[in-house]
Amino acid sequence: MSRRSMSILAISLIIALSVGAVAFGASKELILATTTSTRDTGLLDVLLPVFQERTGYNVKTIAVGTGAALALGKKGEADVLLCHAPASEMELVESGDVINRQLVMHNDFVIVGSPEDPAGVKGVKSATEALRKIADKEAVFVSRADDSGTHKKEKEVWNKLGFEPSGKAWYLEAGTGMANTLNIANEKLAYCLTDRGTYLSMKDRLDLVVLVEGDAILLNIYHVMQVNPEKHKVVDGQGGKAFVEFMVSEEVQEIISKFGIDKYGSPLFFPDAGKSIEDLGG
């Protein structure tokens, strides 16, 4: 093959591969800003194809921490949010940035750590008490530190204890997603506050075990809400409404109640549509 035809071949090959890079996706699209836990557990991979089939909406999932998800909603960069930081969500409800907020499901947070448990927190009933022991012992603790719902919950427990861990040498602020934070805790034989779903989905690869669970403060509650279309022209109110209705529909609640049983032996989330936070005792 001559040099010229070879170059032409190479160039046309690259052009052929490039065509379509600029092609737009489906016509109707909806931006869902959510927490990493819903993606990392695989729940959305199960739900979104069903939603797309029912409504024709192509959902773009931006999986970030809850803080970032709420910020995207407030900016009008997302149409619908699925988060787990009730107090921060209520601020947006009150400011009118989000509407139609509904309870979807819950699971719980747990404190995990290495089986050696240097601070001796295993079986401690109160999460606050457990963190106090960890702080007293100055045992290594890995925090999400990314303003996510999990991080907000962790701060809530520290606040209740009246202790500020930030800046302490044994308190590692990872600034990353849940799965990554668990990996770090696993490597460092450290303690970590995690949502049970992500922990269960990674359990096989981790040495960490659940040490503290069942305290009411550790409840992890997920709400879905749509961004107020009256605040931003670009927000798709119809699609947002459809997604909220979809998440609390009987069909989806049924899927949620079974999700994870085949793989982990127990469900990762418990469906709660129609209930109120008080019903959960949180």
Binding site: V22, A23, F24, G25, K75
Partner: peptide, 20 residues
């Protein structure tokens, strides 16, 4: 490219075009 940004009307955020 954010849809509330100066070029938001192009709707390019989160597309391969934005990456290009």
């Amino acid at each position: 490219l954010w849809r509330t940004g100066p070029l938001g009307f192009l709707r390019l955020m989160y597309t391969p075009t934005a990456m290009v």
